[in-house]
Design a binder for these strands. Structure first.
Lengths: 179, 179
DNA sequence: GACTTATATCTCAGTAGTAAGATTGTTCCT
DNA sequence: AGGAACAATCTTACTACTGAGATATAAGTC
């Protein structure tokens, strides 16, 4: 309910709004969960708005969010099995193969055999990948911090706690379905 | 940092973890924005977890989230111009055409001419669409409420306020790019 | 050691969505 | 009225990603 872009609405006769309102029979009373629905709306919207910031930032370097996510996790955690990355960045099994392929083509990531298990492959950052992350990660962190600047430090702390609880519980009650 | 699925890890020799940790040179100090990054992580994760609930629910009726979003906004607001829907559910201009086409094929939505402006089209719920929403919306609201049950009523209220502020500000500072 | 079950990744077909530009229509200005 | 500028939707080509199944490997059981 706050997504209305101001927009000069030049070519828009006012007939429309009236009509919109006029023929509408009021919704059946689903007031019961109004507050919950509202929370879900603001949660989705906030996430989408911030994601637009992060997408725009990584796009400047020719990366998608998912690609950047892989680079970031490798940058901070070191070599990881493809499946481990998959669980962290929440992408399908086919997706992780595809994404690592593409990062490999770009020369940012390489696959390495896993000594103890010949089914498994590690993804590792190449030197070029590491250099790239070193160069762009700090700016990315700044973009995120900027996008979160609508809250004070204390508010951010509270939000973090609430969202952690919320996410944990929601993930638990979602049965089975990761892949 | 909490996405590790427990998983019985039967076929997984322990060699791997050691190696992972061993060859990893510690990340350069990006402690500066650690709290902000954390908030962004829990925010994304919570949203993703809840979205999985909502997706699973609407999929039972053969709908995608975007399709459901259109039906819902029409259900609650009455006929709307395609552009208005687009701004509300945050999809590209091509996307809204595609989605309304598909809902029209399913017989849930129809296009109607706009009396005052022949470029514009209204989307309206067909009787079948209205019946469907009447039938499935309450259950959907319940699913959402259930997914949010990790927070108490007071916590939800606080979260709503914080997220509204956060989203508003983040949307403002994202220049231009809606389409 | 053969068999069953589980795991890790990959392949491939299909889907949902985006982005850029085309088309058609509207308003403003002279 | 004529033309410039702007707006709403649609078209088309493309991309990222999903999901089901395939392949190869591993571990536990008898």
């Amino acid at each position: 309910m706050s997504a209305e872009t101001p927009s000069k609405r030049r070519g828009r006769p006012t007939v429309r709004a009236e009509r919109s309102a006029a023929t509408h029979t009021p919704p059946p009373l689903d007031e019961r969960y109004a507050e919950e629905l509202k929370l879900w709306v603001v949660l989705s919207r906030a996430t989408a708005a911030i994601r637009r910031h992060t997408e725009a930032d990584v796009a400047r370097h020719g990366l998608s969010i998912a690609e950047f996510g892989i680079l970031e996790v490798l940058y901070h955690k070191g070599p990881l099995l493809l499946g481990e990355i998959q669980r962290r960045i929440l992408v399908s099994s086919g997706g992780i193969t595809f994404l690592v392929d593409r990062l490999a083509e770009k020369g940012l990531v390489a696959r390495e055999a896993c000594p103890g298990d010949r089914r498994a492959r590690y993804a590792v950052l190449t030197p070029a990948g590491r250099v790239l992350m070193k160069r762009i990660f700090p700016g990315h962190a700044e973009v995120i911090a900027g996008a979160l600047a609508g809250l004070s430090r204390d508010e951010r702390r509270i939000a973090t706690k609430l969202l952690r609880d919320l996410g944990r519980r929601a993930a638990e009650s979602a049965a089975s379905g990761t892949v």
